[in-house]
Design a protein around this nucleic acid. Structure first.
Lengths: 188, 188
DNA sequence: TATCCCATGTAACGAGTTACATGATTCT
DNA sequence: AGAATCATGTAACTCGTTACATGGGATA
């Protein structure tokens, strides 16, 4: 097998279609109107991605020839598609993602509804927190090696990054608390 | 002319070479060791990018045949290269960048040293602040339209974004204060 | 002797962007 | 009547990623 993994966009599409079957144009409108995950709404990215998913057998297209001038292709995930989505949602946050693919981390989180149990989501966030903390230590170590603050702008840029990660940890803590509250989960 | 703009990576290279002439391998080591701007350190991205810059006449390569086994190609920016860098550094932050290219914003800031006056950097940050505020208003508007908090994870994800932008504003304010302090610039 | 690091590159591939194309329907 | 919107797609292009190639010097 050794199947190549899907792109972030493909997983996003899979997650959306799991929420509700829709056409490529529906996806386009969603991406154009939603500020959440910032994917491009260009047809040149969406339609080919849907096609790829269909070729892999992860989604099926139902032709809606009812009222429309052009037949709308309404996509739904297949069993294999749902399985792939779930497998992806179960992946814990990696250091790599913390550094350069923060979008994927939040995408998995926001698509977890209905696929992961509250306990699993909390475990996911706990892993996320750990990776952020680990990376922040590394950043601090690097900054210590920097020594003088001769180049102010560079130092401030580093501080910018550090603060962003700090804020992430605060958010994680609050998010975990809210999820626990909603589902009446207690520590220990 | 209608020259196509450079990629973020190419501007980063130009900015680094303006700080100090170096070879592709030096860049590789820098990218591999520095957590700052997270570019890939793979040779497949760096060497072709340097080549493109050379073809455009923005950098020149000096062959260092002194002691090395293989001749090192040490790159330096040309006059045209420095001009292109400066033009880029003078670009103010756009809404587009705030949404999906935050890295470029900070890259320009951290490379401004020696190219922009403190006043210009402060103006840059002020523009940055304005765009973030504007975008945050849009986010708030969108969230109000969301209404119920039935889908907790989606709501929390949105909150994550909002907080990140809030933190950015706080950082901008602190950064501006520090720069003003250092250069003894007073308001009004 | 063998393996790692220096230092350069190339080749294949994939995915996203931009721009274009089509044609019906609804708004002005 | 003309413009914008719905709804689909394709083609060219560019850039970055991965993997491979080379070959000398240093290290074990």
């Amino acid at each position: 097998m050794t199947e190549t993994p899907l792109t972030t966009l493909e997983y996003a599409l899979l997650g959306l279609l799991a929420l509700a079957s829709m056409s490529g144009y529906d996806v386009h409108r969603l991406f154009a109107s939603t500020p959440l995950a910032h994917f491009s709404s260009s047809p040149g990215s969406i339609y080919p991605a849907l096609k790829r998913l269909a070729q892999r057998g992860l989604v099926t297209a139902a032709l809606d020839t009812s009222t429309e001038a052009r037949p709308r292709r309404v996509y739904s995930p297949t069993e294999a598609g749902l399985a792939a989505l779930k497998a992806w949602l179960h992946q814990s946050v990696t250091r790599e993602e913390v550094m350069r693919n923060q979008g994927a981390i939040m995408l998995r989180f926001s698509l977890a509804e209905g696929h992961l149990s509250p306990q699993e989501v909390i475990a996911y966030l706990a892993g996320y927190r750990q990776e952020v903390m680990r990376y922040m230590e590394e950043l601090a170590h690097y900054r210590d090696g920097m020594g003088d603050v001769s180049r102010l702008y560079e130092w401030l840029a580093l501080e910018h990054g550090r603060r962003a990660y700090e804020e992430q940890v605060r958010w994680i803590d609050d998010a975990m608390a809210q999820i626990k509250l909603k589902h009446r989960i207690h520590d220990e």
